[in-house]
Write a protein that binds this DNA or RNA. Sequence first.
DNA 1: GTGATTTTGACAACCATTATCAATAAGCGT
DNA 2: ACGCTTATTGATAATGGTTGTCAAAATCAC
Lengths: 137, 137
Amino acid sequence: MKRNTWQREAVREALDDTEGFISAQALHGALHQTGSPIGLATVYRALGDLAANGEADSLQSPDGEALYRACSTTGHHHHLICRNCGLTVEIAADEVEAWAKRVAADHGFTAAAHVVDVFGLCANCTKLLAAGEQPLA
Amino acid sequence: MKRNTWQREAVREALDDTEGFISAQALHGALHQTGSPIGLATVYRALGDLAANGEADSLQSPDGEALYRACSTTGHHHHLICRNCGLTVEIAADEVEAWAKRVAADHGFTAAAHVVDVFGLCANCTKLLAAGEQPLA
DNA sequence: GTGATTTTGACAACCATTATCAATAAGCGT
DNA sequence: ACGCTTATTGATAATGGTTGTCAAAATCAC
């Protein structure tokens, strides 16, 4: 039987309050900052459940971290994510939608879904890192 | 200065001989089976270098493993992957490259990298699944 | 060949994630 | 409302992939 716990609800809300993607660790940290004593393992479990239920989306960052986002029922869009500070901008991508569909069709693929996310350094972090750092990508 | 070592060459060849994607660990294992005493750390380094040079492609498996593949085209490209049988097609995406760059620039982002992969059902699997199955994405 | 320097590789360190398991608490039947 | 059953929690250990360390070995310029 599935029980309702305040922890699961807390994770769901924290995820809803988050713009774009967030890692399990970051979400755990955010929850702690609000005073919630929720455990890390529980956050992982809750996120896994949400993803399994289709209430959340997950993707792998280039660094191999698993990132989660609240599954917005408000439609399909993509993200521009700062790999330094985590700032996320939602981006419409009609152009890419069309491209993905066409490419899939050209190769006989059906039921095409796609993962399209852009990672970079936001303007602010670019300035901060300009003092000597060399980003690799 | 960059030096030529048999280890690096061995990794490059092993990768060339591999159909599709392979993990660093698996590649290390394969090399050992052929009698090569190459070290694991070296395999990781070589793969990283190849990927940085655009001679290899890397992507994150759903399990968080990094998978590598010899790049048939030396340029940057993306993948169309059958979520049923794993068939992978390399796709050029100049259109998307341009889009990604423009979107990043529009928002003041720099050092933009992007994850663009299309998952679907290849023609063959579409036929196979036509008999009643309903893919989830 | 000699020497400066890169590269290697065994192993430790790291980090995200998962498993463990006793303690806790949710929800059912009463 | 109470107790009981059992899912859930959470501190911690374990896991597994990947990266850092650093002495030893190999490479290239000369």
